[in-house]
Nucleic acid binder design. Structure first.
Lengths: 158, 158
DNA sequence: ATTGAAATAACTCTCAC
DNA sequence: GTGAGAGTTATTTCAAT
């Protein structure tokens, strides 16, 4: 992971359809070198895939929300089962298992507030392992497009 | 947005580097038709971009957390300012402005628990507009790779 | 709106340096 | 890490349906 690898990652996060030629030009190496670098990044698991991003609004899901849920008993089986169940629901964008006041944080995208309520009642509240939950409407969302390697400037490994 | 568009979106979300030929074969239309469809989806803003996904662990950020923050005064200026500030921090993956008990939900990726603590103290707690906050370590995360158009089966628009 | 084919253009990959 | 060449593949256009 040197500066060239970092630059490659940075560019491909912004535009995964860059050709090898173009990418090589952007990072300042020969196409053959660039190809080898990208291959290595894939092989090492630094780059995990290339994905088209779609606008939920264009897909009829203009409303997003977070759902915070507490589960009991909090066993591995219950967690795995609930995760698997959620991943099958079309409304669900992401599922986080977290420490703290809640056990699950679920991000959903739905067409209407009625559909959100229906999801909460029929898909969440109906589950026996969910002892309680709350939800928050998402007003705004900004996602960092480009994730950089840790800069060693800010030390935290004292 | 017919079945062909849906299929195109589905495949490109899984692999944005599919060639037009391959994509056409997968969805069962001629390459020329497929090209036209993809162009239209881009032009209409259904597909917003193509991005390489990178593993935060490979970039030296194995630890992720959510930070829940309450801000005061909750004015447009304060919200915008805090959003902008956060988007400049390399630790930040996404920023959500939400309703409910908290105003901001921030997802971060850091190298160590020490760095998380440092971020909370130096970057969050230090801000005057943050009246209080809490954090949750993320144990597991599953993100839905493919977002489908709303299926009209589950009605919510009564 | 979709198709099929043909022409053009561009890329990927390998190898020797 | 580089550069060039050979081979391959894709993109694009156009006439027809």
């Amino acid at each position: 992971m040197d500066d060239i690898d970092s630059a490659i990652i940075r560019h491909l996060q912004r535009d995964a359809r860059l050709t090898n030629r173009e990418l090589a030009r952007l990072v300042g190496v020969a196409p053959s070198t660039c190809l080898e670098r990208v291959r290595s990044l894939r092989a090492r698991g630094v780059i995990t895939g290339y994905h088209a991003a779609v606008d939920p609004r264009a897909l009829g899901r203009p409303l997003q929300a977070l759902i915070f849920a507490r589960l009991r008993p909090l066993s591995r089986e219950v967690i795995t089962g609930f995760q698997h169940y959620l991943s099958q629901q079309p409304e669900v964008l992401s599922v986080l298992v977290v420490s703290g006041d809640e056990d699950f944080v679920i991000q959903v995208a739905v067409p209407t507030i009625e559909r959100l309520h229906a999801f909460l009642m029929d898909q969440v509240s109906a589950r026996r392992e969910v002892v309680n939950f709350r939800s928050s409407v998402i007003y705004q969302q900004t996602v960092t497009q480009v994730l950089a390697p840790v800069d060693e400037g800010r030390r935290g490994d004292a």
